[in-house]
């Protein structure tokens, strides 16, 4: 019964479509204007291009980094640390959240510890981590895990605990065991929480790895930023930040794709 669309419907759909295009155009326009003004002001010497750098300088720096083969090395290092931290923290955090869901006793006992760990600025543990794990990749990954895992535990545990009590009652009335309740009800109903936890974790893992690289590193994007700052090469700092933006967006996009794949309507 495909009815021909009414006039009102058509104009409504048209309006919707234009609205969408308008938003996208506006988004690009803001970026273009900002970059353009930045470049213009730098060339006209209205702003100090030594302190503020400029888009053309930034792109030159990125190209020269790429040509010297340095870029790949730094990107790979940071990406490796971030992804490793992300996966370890997500997996471990989810498992710990599951254990806390399983045992009321454990949850009640550990609650104050989790609260304290959550409010503690993890960077304060930096020196301890370096002493324990050495000035290398291990420390950086550990920092990423530490920052990501607490949030994962809290988010996932809340997700597990908010499972519909009526559905739990239904499962219990059918004589379901705790494992069955977990596998057939709690886990599938927490899928959306898991996805949103992944999205948070992308950001968290990046904070962790960059912060780790600020503390100890010989290579990586975080290292480039710190190094650039120390030798007053602001173009290097800005170029690294741009690369960081691109990498983080790509990883977020990856999670969004996963979401579309897992949650089919």
């Amino acid at each position: 019964m495909p009815n021909p669309l009414s006039k009102e419907r058509k104009s409504y759909l048209k309006k919707q479509k234009y609205n969408k295009i308008f938003i996208t155009v506006a988004q690009f326009l803001i970026l273009t204007i900002l970059i353009g003004l930045w470049e213009l002001f730098a060339r006209l010497n209205i702003i100090d291009s030594f302190l503020m750098s400029s888009p053309s300088q930034i792109s030159k720096t990125i190209i020269s980094l790429f040509k010297s083969g340095e870029l790949g090395k730094h990107i790979f290092t940071t990406l490796y640390e971030t992804l490793l931290g992300f996966f370890i923290a997500t997996a471990l955090g989810t498992i710990i959240a599951l254990m806390l869901w399983w045992s009321d006793f454990l949850r009640k006992v550990l609650e104050p510890y989790i609260v304290v760990l959550n409010s503690l600025p993890k960077i304060a543990l930096g020196p301890i981590i370096i002493v324990w794990f050495g000035a290398g990749t291990k420390s950086i990954v550990f920092m990423a895990v530490l920052i990501t895992i607490i949030v994962t535990i809290i988010t996932m545990l809340n997700g597990f605990l908010s499972t519909d009590s009526g559905k739990i009652l239904l499962m219990r009335s059918l004589g379901a065991s705790k494992v069955q309740i977990l596998l057939k009800l709690v886990l599938p109903s927490s899928l959306e929480t898991f996805i949103s936890s992944l999205k948070i974790n992308v950001g968290m893992a990046w904070i962790g790895s960059i912060m780790g690289e600020y503390l100890v590193s010989k290579q990586g994007i975080g290292y480039l930023i710190v190094y650039g700052g120390q030798v007053f090469r602001l173009d290097l700092v800005m170029a690294s930040t741009v690369i960081l933006c691109a990498l983080a967006s790509l990883m977020y996009l990856g999670v969004s794709l996963l979401e579309k794949l897992l949650i089919k309507k």
Partner: peptide, 30 residues
């Protein structure tokens, strides 16, 4: 062995399962 069925106030159908897999849930559990 309590062969007893319990119907609750709300339907409590699992939104991620289709109707077939919802109505056969008790068979899976048991």
């Amino acid at each position: 062995d309590k062969n007893i069925g319990y119907m609750l106030q709300r339907d409590e159908l699992f939104p991620w399962r289709n109707i077939e897999r919802n109505v056969t849930l008790p068979l899976e559990i048991k």
